[in-house]
Design a protein around this nucleic acid. Structure first.
Lengths: 213, 213
DNA sequence: ACGGTAAGCTGACGGCATGACAGGACAAGT
DNA sequence: ACTTGTCCTGTCATGCCGTCAGCTTACCGT
């Protein structure tokens, strides 16, 4: 699938080149999680990687280009989120456990990649198609199986419910909660209470019923 | 409340100065809605305002400082969102209408201020306390009255429900949906179907019941 | 071992944004 | 017209951007 890694001017990158490239990406990732996106400069990334700005431009057109690279890598990784929903049961207590695991897994993924996801979210909101596509890939890895689950569990009983809308809303909520968990703290929701509450919402959304006691 | 408007070096701004300042803010607002936040430069804002970069620095420490100004203005404006919930009934059909109006009003507000809210959201996510505070002010204008509504409507019946968590989750959802409405479109949810679906979620969250037919 | 070839890196440079300052333009009152 | 304080900008030092030519390094065939 992935062809050869190429430099900006078309040369194919060899072993050493790929190492440098990777180091630059790692340093950029680091920078993103420590300073505001707006303040991330090529020269800082290069300095941190122990190389020169010119080298950076050998491998990436600009900061955004490198960020997209990291984001795509992360999006690949997000495919694993499917397993949190695929083939799971939503019946009774098992169902609530499914919900809890989904919330847990999703939040963990988001927290692990929070820096890059912040930038992706911004790019998508600003209307950048490349970032939008990446964001959709991440969300879809949960939204698509979850939509099936909603359809299977309450689609029949209530025709006013649009499974895609419900599933999309639930995942949007999870994303928002993950990105701004601090907001919930400030509303007096303790960190350990956040997950159960989100799990409740998800369970309710999918099944349309209150969870068993 | 707001004392005299002052320049960076401490002089009080007069009539003409305030006009210039305002023009700079307006142009910055415009810039924010047309180009990515990362690419907004002082020199562009100054050019658009028909003045020089030096003038910009007379009134604001940097781009971020000016953005905070705009954001604070917007946050003041958000106080009006309270009226969408305060003193409204959540019973029966009236309740569902309340929910629809809340969704409608909230989305309209967000859309109207989408550019600045994007930046505020980013800043808050990056851990900037000033942006976080502003974001909370906006969200709280809905979250606090909505929490009361949740407590009044289903808090008694179900002790496992944390009103603050539910209310916070609902508003987070609305914010996320407003910022990324395009995502819903891509999930096959038509624009005109989005609002009713969100209204449904809100009604369900507040009352704990399915809406009347 | 040895040259050839392509990959890899960087110094240096023009261009542009930043942020500070001092001095000139301007409005308002006397 | 003169004075005073506000307001704006020309200019400058600094620093980042993005490009290029050219040097160094690694790999490969002979």
């Amino acid at each position: 699938m992935t062809g050869q890694v190429r430099t900006v001017d078309g040369r194919v990158a060899g072993r050493r080149g790929q190492e440098t490239r990777q180091k630059l990406l790692d340093c950029l990732r680091e920078m993103l999680s420590t300073s505001p996106y707006r303040d991330v400069k090529v020269i800082d990334v290069a300095r941190m990687a122990g190389t020169s700005p010119a080298t950076f431009y050998q491998y990436f057109p600009d900061v955004e280009g490198a960020v997209l690279e990291i984001a795509e890598e992360m999006a690949e990784d997000s495919a694993g989120l499917k397993e949190l929903v695929d083939g799971k049961s939503w019946a009774g207590k098992t169902g609530f456990a499914t919900s809890e695991e989904l919330v847990d897994g999703f939040l963990a993924f988001w927290r692990k990649n929070d820096a890059i996801l912040r930038v992706v979210t911004l790019g998508a909101a600003e209307g950048d198609k490349r970032f939008f596509k990446i964001r959709m890939k991440v969300l879809n890895s949960v939204v698509s199986p979850l939509t099936d689950a909603v359809r299977a569990n309450q689609g029949k009983t209530d025709k006013t419910v649009d499974p895609a809308a419900v599933s999309g809303a639930l995942v949007s909520l999870l994303a928002s909660a993950a990105e701004h968990s601090k907001a919930f703290t400030s509303w007096g929701v303790k960190v350990k209470d956040l997950k159960p509450n989100l799990a409740l919402q998800v369970y309710l959304g999918v099944t349309g019923k209150k969870p068993p006691r």
